[in-house]
Nucleic acid binder design. Structure first.
Length: 716
DNA sequence: GTTCTAGAAC
DNA sequence: GTTCTAGAAC
C-alpha cells in the first residue's frame, strides 16, 4: 500500500513547482520555468484492465470529476454514437485526444496482451502508457454486472455472468515488457480508492514513477530450456540401454539422418489419452462407450489411418473397458486399438509410430498441472507453447485445437510428431473450473463433442497428408550393431581426455592447444552426429544442424562444419569454399522453413569473428532477439556488431583474398545499440524493451545486400 | 558457452 | 531496496 503513496509524495513535489510556475508575479522566471517543465510534459494513456463489472468506468469518472489534468474517457461500449464500437474507433479517438493535449483513459476490458498491444503503440517521447489493473474477484464483477441496469455496454442480467466468466478465461495480466511505463494493480476497493487519488492528484505537468506496483502472486513461470548437450551426451545412451518394457526400436532410425517426416509415414496415426477420466473424474464406463462409439463412427472416414487410445499403466481400467467394448463391436483392431506407454515417447520407447498426438489440455492451454498435459508441454519445449499461442488462448469444453509442431521441436524431431491436438473435455471434479455437478446428460454430450472435434482435427491432417507422395519407411532396415553402453564409455573418455589441464583464456581456448570441456560440445556433435540423434536436426557428410542450446532469438540454429581441423573462422581458407557454400545453402533452407511457419521472421546468417566454442559454426538467427537467454552485452554485440560476419561476406572474402576478415573481440565491450535504429541504451533490459517496439527499418547496408533475409510480403 | 553472486548503480 | 553488470568458477 505504501507504493501509491510514494507516487503521491512525488506529485506533491511537482505540485509545489507547478504552483510556482503559475504564479503571475515574475513573468520572466515563469517563462523559464514553463519551458523547463513543458520539456518534460507528457500525456498519459491509461489502459483500464478488467472484466465487465470491475469498475473501470466508475474509476474514470471518479478521476475526471476532480482532476486538473484534461482527460478523455474512451469507452468502446458507447463510442459509436452511444452504441458499442470497434477497437479501431477507440484508437482513432485516442490519437485525436492526445493531439488535443488530453490524457486518455481506454475504458474497455483490455484483458489480453493482443488486445492491449495496439494501444501501447500510442506511447512515445511525449506519451506514457499506463495500465490500471482491476483485479477484483470474479464474483464481485459478476454480481455487479448482473445487478446493474442501464449499463452502457447493455450487459446485464444472466448473460453478464457468462460473458465475465468467458473473458476471465483468456485474461493475461499486463507486464512492463509489453511496453507499459507503469502498471498499478488493485485487488479491492481500498486499492481502487488509492488509485483514484493518485490519478486525480496528477496535474497537467506531473508524472508518476514508472514501474509495476501492487502485484500479488506474480507469475514466476520460467521457460524450460531446450535440450542440454552435456546432459544428453551421457544420459541418452545410458537410458536406452536400460528399462524398456516394450520393444526398443532406437536402432531402427539409424540410417535416417533426416528424422521421421510425415511423408515417410506409411500409416497416419493419432495417439490420444482418455479425455476427462483422470483429473476431471468422468465416469469410466460412460467414457469408454463414448470413445468406442465415436471411434467407430470415424474409422470409415479415416481411410487407413489409425486411432490409438494410450494410457501409462498396464492396469488402466479405461483401456481394458475400451478394448473389451471395441472387440464386442468387431471394430478393426488394426485401425483402432489401445496402447500402454508414455504418449510423448511412443516411438522411441514403445515402437509405435504416431504422427499426431492429442493432449488432455486445460482451458487456458497452459503447460503444467501434471498428467498428460504437463508431459506433452515438457517434451515439446517452448516451441509448443508458442505454436499453441499462435492458434488460441483458451479452449472450451468439447472443443479442440490443432497445433502444427515446428520442425525444430524435440517432439517432432525425436518422435516424428507433426501435430498436437489440444482437447478439453467436460469436468466432473468440483475442485476444477466449470464442474458439471454430476450432470451426465450434458457431460456425455460434451465428451462426445470433444472426441468428435479431436478426430475431425486428425482427419484434417490425414487429408493434408494424402496430398503428399507416400514413401516407404526404410528406417527399419539397418542397425549399426554397436553396444550403447560401450559407446557411452568411449564417449565420456573423449571428453575427459580433453579436460585435463592447461590455462584457459576467456573464449574457452587453451593458449597452447586444446579447449575447455564446455567449449567442445559442438565439436563432439559434429564429429559424431549419429550419437546425438535427439538433438541433430539434419546432417550430411559435411554439415550438422542443431538448435542452439541457448537460443538468443525466437529461431536460432547452428550449422556445424564437420571438418576436423576447422575450429573457427580464422582457420577458414580457399580449400573450404565448398564447405562454406554448403553451410550457407543449408542455412538458407532453414530460413525458408522457419519463414514458412512464420513469415514475419527475419534472419541473418553469419559467423562470430572469434568463436567461444570449437568447430566452425554458422549462426542462423532471427532478428527479433526475443529470448531469455540473451542476457548480456557480449551476447548482444556478438550478433549485432561487425563481430558478426555475414556468411555472404565471408564467402566473398575467402574467394577473393583467401581468408575472412575478423573483427576484434574489443567490439563486444562497446555500447548497446539497437540493431534497427542504432540508438544506444544503458542496460540490456532497456535495450530489450526498446527493440520490441522499435519501428525503424534495418540499416541500409543489410537491406541492400540481402544479408538480411525477410519475406518480401512481411511488413518489416 | 552458462551459472553464480558481490557490489555498483539507481 | 531492487536491478543490473561483470568477474570467477566451471
Amino acid at each position: 500500500m505504501f507504493i501509491p503513496l510514494l507516487g503521491l509524495e512525488f506529485i506533491e513535489n511537482r505540485k509545489e513547482r507547478e504552483r510556482e510556475t503559475s504564479s503571475p508575479i515574475n513573468n520572466a522566471s515563469k517563462m523559464e520555468m514553463e519551458t523547463e517543465v513543458s520539456a518534460e510534459k507528457k500525456e498519459i494513456v491509461v489502459l483500464l484492465v478488467g472484466p465487465p463489472g470491475s469498475g473501470k468506468s466508475t474509476f474514470c469518472e471518479s478521476v475526471m470529476k476532480s482532476s486538473h489534468r484534461p482527460w478523455s474517457r474512451i469507452c468502446q461500449d458507447i463510442i459509436n454514437n452511444g452504441k458499442a464500437g470497434s477497437k479501431a474507433q477507440c484508437l482513432k479517438m485516442a490519437i485525436e485526444s492526445l493531439k488535443e493535449g488530453k490524457s486518455v483513459f481506454i475504458d474497455r476490458c483490455n484483458l489480453d496482451r493482443e488486445q492491449r498491444s495496439e494501444f501501447i503503440k500510442l506511447g512515445g517521447p511525449h506519451v506514457e502508457v499506463h495500465a490500471l489493473v482491476l483485479e477484483l474477484s470474479a464474483q464481485v464483477c459478476i454480481s455487479r454486472s448482473v445487478k446493474r441496469s442501464g449499463h452502457e455496454g447493455n450487459l446485464q442480467g444472466g448473460r453478464a455472468a457468462a460473458v465475465v466468466n468467458k473473458m476471465l478465461r483468456s485474461k493475461e495480466l499486463p507486464k512492463l515488457n509489453e511496453g507499459f511505463s507503469r502498471i498499478l494493480f488493485c485487488y479491492n476497493d481500498a486499492d481502487v480508492e488509492n488509485a483514484v487519488k493518485t490519478y486525480t492528484m496528477l496535474g497537467p505537468m506531473d508524472t508518476l514513477p514508472s514501474g509495476s506496483f501492487g502485484l500479488k502472486n506474480p507469475d514466476t513461470k520460467s521457460q524450460p530450456g531446450i535440450m542440454n548437450f552435456f546432459k544428453k551426451v551421457s544420459a541418452v545412451p545410458a537410458a536406452s540401454s536400460s528399462s524398456n518394457e516394450v520393444t526398443t526400436p532406437k536402432a531402427n532410425e539409424k540410417i535416417e539422418i533426416f528424422r521421421v517426416s510425415p511423408a515417410k509415414l506409411v500409416v497416419p496415426t493419432l495417439a490420444f489419452p482418455s479425455i476427462s477420466t483422470a483429473d476431471f473424474q468422468f465416469d469410466l464406463d460412460k467414457a469408454s462407450d463414448i470413445i468406442v462409439e465415436t471411434a467407430e463412427a470415424f474409422l470409415p472416414k479415416l481411410g487407413s489411418a489409425r486411432l490409438v487410445l494410450v494410457d501409462l499403466s498396464h492396469g488402466s481400467t479405461i483401456l481394458s473397458l475400451v478394448k473389451a467394448k471395441a472387440s464386442r463391436k468387431n471394430i478393426d483392431s488394426g485401425r483402432f486399438f489401445t496402447f500402454v506407454g508414455d504418449i510423448t515417447k511412443l516411438h522411441s520407447q514403445g515402437g509405435l509410430h504416431c504422427n499426431v498426438i492429442a493432449n488432455a489440455a486445460n482451458w487456458r492451454l497452459k503447460s503444467g498441472g501434471g498428467g498428460v498435459n504437463a508431459a506433452i508441454f515438457k517434451a515439446a519445449g517452448p516451441d509448443l507453447e508458442a505454436a499453441t499461442r499462435a492458434r488460441a488462448n483458451t479452449l472450451l469444453p468439447g472443443k479442440s485445437v490443432l497445433v502444427p509442431l515446428p520442425s525444430t521441436c524435440p517432439l517432432h524431431n525425436a518422435e516424428g510428431i507433426t501435430h498436437v491436438i489440444h482437447v478439453l473435455g467436460p469436468n466432473m471434479n468440483p475442485n476444477r473450473p466449470d464442474c458439471l455437478n454430476n450432470d451426465y446428460t450434458k457431460g456425455c454430450k460434451i465428451l462426445r463433442e470433444a472426441y468428435t472435434s479431436l478426430f475431425e482435427g486428425f482427419l484434417s491432417t490425414v487429408q493434408d497428408q494424402s496430398k503428399l507422395p507416400k514413401r516407404i519407411n526404410q528406417a527399419t532396415v539397418l542397425d549399426s550393431g554397436e553396444e550403447d553402453s560401450e559407446r557411452n564409455k568411449k564417449f565420456k573418455g573423449t571428453i575427459a581426455s580433453n579436460t585435463k589441464s592447461g590455462s584457459v583464456d576467456d573464449s574457452g581456448k587453451k593458449r597452447s592447444k586444446g579447449w575447455s570441456s564446455w567449449a567442445l560440445a559442438l565439436h563432439i556433435i559434429a564429429m559424431h552426429p549419429e550419437k546425438h540423434e535427439n538433438i541433430v536436426l539434419e546432417s550430411s557428410d559435411h554439415i550438422v544442424v542443431i538448435n542452439d542450446q541457448y537460443p538468443k532469438a525466437r529461431k536460432h540454429v547452428l550449422v556445424l562444419a564437420r571438418e576436423e581441423s576447422v575450429d573457427g573462422l580464422e582457420d577458414v581458407g580457399r580449400e573450404n569454399i565448398q564447405l562454406l557454400e554448403e553451410m550457407q545453402n543449408v542455412g538458407m533452407k532453414w530460413v525458408q522453413r522457419f519463414q514458412h511457419e512464420d513469415p514475419s521472421l527475419i534472419f541473418r546468417l553469419g559467423y562470430h569473428s572469434v568463436p567461444s566454442m570449437r568447430q566452425l559454426h554458422l549462426h542462423v538467427i532471427s532478428q527479433d532477439f526475443e529470448s531469455d537467454h540473451l542476457k548480456n552485452k557480449k551476447h548482444w554485440n556478438s550478433f549485432t556488431t561487425s563481430f558478426f560476419r555475414d556468411s555472404l561476406d565471408v564467402l566473398e572474402e575467402v574467394k577473393s583474398q583467401g581468408k575472412a576478415n575478423l573483427e576484434s573481440e574489443a567490439v563486444l565491450k562497446g555500447e548497446l545499440r539497437c540493431n534497427r535504429c542504432r540508438s544506444a541504451h544503458p542496460t540490456i533490459p532497456k535495450l530489450k524493451s526498446h527493440i520490441r517496439t522499435c519501428p525503424s527499418p534495418f540499416p541500409h547496408h543489410l537491406l541492400q545486400t540481402s544479408r538480411l533475409l525477410a519475406r518480401p510480403d512481411s511488413s518489416n
